[in-house]
Write a protein that binds this DNA or RNA. Sequence first.
DNA 1: CGCCGGTTGTGAGCCGAATTCACAACCAAG
DNA 2: CTTGGTTGTGAATTCGGCTCACAACCGGCG
Lengths: 293, 293
Amino acid sequence: MPTRLPPLATLQAFEAAVRHQSYTRAAQELALTHGAISHHVSALEERLGLRLFERDGNRMVPTEHGRLLVVKVRQALGLLERGFARAGRDEHVSLAVSVLPALASRWLAPRLPNFAEQHPDIDLCLDVRSGVADLAAGDADAAIRYGPGGWPDVQQVRLMGDELLPVCAPHYRGGRLPASVAELGDCTLLRNPWVPWEPWLHAAGAEWREPKRGPVCTDSAVLLDMAATGLGVALARRVFDDGDLRSGRLVRVLDISVPDPSSYFFVWRADHPQIDAIHLLRDWLLEQVLPTT
Amino acid sequence: MPTRLPPLATLQAFEAAVRHQSYTRAAQELALTHGAISHHVSALEERLGLRLFERDGNRMVPTEHGRLLVVKVRQALGLLERGFARAGRDEHVSLAVSVLPALASRWLAPRLPNFAEQHPDIDLCLDVRSGVADLAAGDADAAIRYGPGGWPDVQQVRLMGDELLPVCAPHYRGGRLPASVAELGDCTLLRNPWVPWEPWLHAAGAEWREPKRGPVCTDSAVLLDMAATGLGVALARRVFDDGDLRSGRLVRVLDISVPDPSSYFFVWRADHPQIDAIHLLRDWLLEQVLPTT
DNA sequence: CGCCGGTTGTGAGCCGAATTCACAACCAAG
DNA sequence: CTTGGTTGTGAATTCGGCTCACAACCGGCG
């Protein structure tokens, strides 16, 4: 399996040849003879089983295959050149990212090692807060926000939507878990003011409304902890309760779920001085989220 | 100039060594001896003047520099491997992009050759229309929209904001161009229903309001053509009149400009089957726009 | 047409670099 | 301390890239 890749010199020769549309000029640039370029290109063509150039008079014009290939080659060479030019200088970048507590602990934290590995030159500083960080004021360099989207003055992409479903501790009420929506009315509904029960109750066909009293917590993770102690039934998002469901700390109640009308968004400002790092973070987040869509 | 890059075999050896944290295992993977790996790594270290590995017992653990470097190397190698694996198969992708007429002709069209060169595997199909394409209905794969942002159910990034400033033909009114806001009141104001004069008039301190009569055109490019014929004064966006101003076909009137409250946005759907190509298009658009911010 | 300055294709041979080999040094664990 | 593992290193070998020289080809021009 070793080196099924052509040598670098070959790639550089190919790239220069495409750029100049001429072997001799490419050879001049690389301080070689035209013969070297010719050998390189024919070696490449033989290896791929494809013609990469066609003669047009005394110009060498790349074929379709050649044009497709040279893009990747150029990107790779550029990456290497930049990588080696910068090697030695440590150009660490620090990004302050505002994140909601629940998402930070249950979703982001376990994935951070992966980020650190893929982007060792970016130090993330998680600014965990319940409120909304004002990016314009410099509260943070970027943020993950929860809501309907459409914030003014910032760039934004939706990271993930979710489903809402009720969960509680398996030993809640001595194990006599509610089996119907009506029974659920006798339970303590744990509430998060940002995640109302209304849409779910409506979808489940409940004839009663969300109670105005009882335990309230503004943080979803803590709300789940409360549910796990047997305090009541919480309306949970999949992202957060996945681990708890698997470990048996929590169980689903009834099998009705509704799409969460709110989503998580990554937001940033286009004029940020370290926009490159922010884009890398954005793309990484989108990758993490890809399976979920 | 030539090959200031280390040979590919060296990079592969380095990468494998980082991955295995062991020269001998890296050597096994590449079907080489440990000596080869050792030589490769020390050649790299000497070339860079940096230590890339440190011994930890009988493990070789990469230094900070090593970890930073290996990221670029991995990306580059990955790019090449994928590039060469796919070479030959033509995996062309076609994207239908809905664009407003003015933007398509004055801004996007002249940049398309650049896109074609950078992404020869993506065929753009410009769906030029004045209305809003419904991405969910499959009207297009992505779109560039003009407005305040915050559309539901789509991903979006702001491409560019702009300034609004009045322009007219240099020979308008026989060359007696309006020199004050009051004088502008005697001129014919060409109107685009999507780009009201109000904010500009307000900023300029006009004591009169936008006329309800006179020429109207829903397309900014055509509106500028109308102004160029001497029909009246148009409220133009920089993106569009730049060329006209340089060529002298149009001149600025008064030197007051206001930020355009609307912007151009690139919008797409995260669940699109060709999301990779869409991301490439998005990133390319953002690059085009970078100087403008 | 036929020459000329330009290009690319090709095979032989040279030279340098990548790899191996063999041995020394070192480490961790028994 | 020995044993089985690792890495460092210099010399020998092998392999591949490059040049060189010549043939083939193209476009233009007299």
